[in-house]
C-alpha cells in the first residue's frame, strides 16, 4: 500500500525529461485521475440530486434505506472486531514464532483475496443452504443461515479476513521481538506485555487494517448478494439496496443511497491518509 510521497527536489527533475514530455505525462496522469476517479464521484452526486433535494432526502430516509443502513452497520460491527482479533492472533503467531506450516498459513490467510466474491458466497450456500451439509439442521432449529443475517456475516468475514493480518505481519516482522522479550525479562505477564508493549507499537498499522476491513465490510456486494436473498427490509444491505433501486429504474434514489457509500469511501480515504502518515513514523521507529 502507499506510503507518503517524499517531496522531490524540483531542480533535478527539470533536467530529467524535456518539458514537453513532462507536461504530456502530467496531463495524462491528471486525465486518468480525472476521468476514472473524480468524474465518477461527481457523477454520483449529480445523479443523486437530479430530482432535487426533496427526492434525495426521501430516498435516503426511506424505511427500507434506514433498515439497510442499520443492517450494514450491524454486519460491520460483528465482522470488524472479529477479524481484528483474528488479524492480531495470526500476526502474533506468524511474526513471532517459527513452526512447521508457517508459510502455508500465510498463504491461506491471503487466499480470500484471490477468490471471487461470488464463490465466497457460493461456498456458504453449499454448507448452510437448504440442500447444504448443515442447512437443514440450522433451519429446522429456527436459526436459518442463508438468506439471513448469519450468512451475510459469514460471507463478509470471508472477504475481509486478510485485511488486518496483512497489515500487521510485515510490521511486526520489521519491529522484531526484542522489546517484547525485554518486557518478559522484566517480569511482565502475557497480558501486561500485550497491552503495554505490543499494542502501542502496532496501533497505527492495526488501525489502517481496521479501516480497510471496515470499508470492505460495509461495501461488499458480490458475496453478500449471493447469500442474502435480497429480502427488502430484512436482508438488504446498503450496496444491495442500491442494486435493487437501480434495477427498478429508481435511478435518483439509487444514486442518493450511493452517496452514503461514496461518503464512506471518502472518509475511508481521508482516515487512511492520516493513519498512513502516522504509521510511516512507526515504521521508521521500527528500524531505529
Amino acid at each position: 500500500m502507499s506510503r507518503i510521497l517524499q517531496p522531490q527536489t524540483a531542480s533535478r527533475e527539470q533536467k530529467a525529461e524535456t518539458p514537453f514530455v513532462r507536461y504530456l505525462l502530467s496531463l495524462l496522469a491528471l486525465a486518468i485521475i480525472g476521468l476514472f476517479l473524480i468524474l465518477p464521484l461527481v457523477a454520483v452526486l449529480f445523479e443523486a440530486f437530479r430530482e432535487g433535494w426533496q427526492a434525495y432526502l426521501t430516498a435516503v430516509t426511506d424505511r427500507y434505506t434506514r433498515h439497510a443502513i442499520l443492517l450494514t452497520l450491524f454486519t460491520a460491527l460483528i465482522c470488524v472486531p472479529l477479524n481484528t482479533l483474528f488479524g492480531i492472533a495470526a500476526a502474533w503467531c506468524i511474526a513471532r514464532f517459527q513452526f512447521p506450516g508457517r508459510s502455508l498459513l500465510t498463504t491461506l490467510i491471503d487466499l480470500p483475496f484471490s477468490v471471487s466474491p461470488v464463490i465466497a458466497g457460493l461456498v456458504f450456500i453449499l454448507i448452510f443452504g437448504a440442500q447444504g451439509w448443515f442447512g437443514g439442521w440450522f433451519a429446522a432449529n429456527g436459526f436459518p443461515v442463508i438468506f439471513a443475517l448469519p450468512g451475510i456475516v459469514l460471507a463478509t468475514m470471508f472477504v475481509t479476513l486478510p485485511f488486518v493480518a496483512r497489515e500487521l505481519i510485515p510490521l511486526m516482522q520489521a519491529q522484531g521481538a526484542e522489546q517484547e522479550e525485554a518486557a518478559i525479562m522484566l517480569g511482565a505477564g502475557p497480558w501486561r506485555m500485550f497491552w503495554t508493549i505490543t499494542l502501542p507499537r502496532i496501533k497505527w498499522g492495526l488501525l489502517y487494517g481496521v479501516i480497510l476491513c471496515n470499508a470492505r465490510a460495509m461495501g461488499e456486494f458480490g458475496a453478500v448478494s449471493v447469500v442474502s436473498g435480497h429480502i427488502r427490509g430484512s436482508t438488504n444491505t446498503l450496496p444491495l439496496h442500491v442494486e435493487i433501486l437501480y434495477n427498478e429504474y429508481q435511478f435518483s434514489a439509487a444514486f442518493a443511497v450511493a452517496t452514503l457509500l461514496a461518503g464512506l469511501a471518502i472518509v475511508t480515504l481521508i482516515a487512511k491518509s492520516i493513519v498512513e502518515w502516522r504509521q510511516q513514523r512507526q515504521w521508521e521507529n521500527a528500524s531505529s
Binding site: A182, T196, I197
Partner: peptide
C-alpha cells in the same frame, strides 16, 4: 523467567520507544 531474577541487557537495547 520470573523465578530466575535475571537482568538482561539486549544487544540493541530493546528500549520501549
Amino acid at each position: 523467567i520470573r523465578h530466575r531474577q535475571v537482568g538482561f541487557v539486549f544487544q540493541h537495547y530493546a528500549l520501549f520507544n
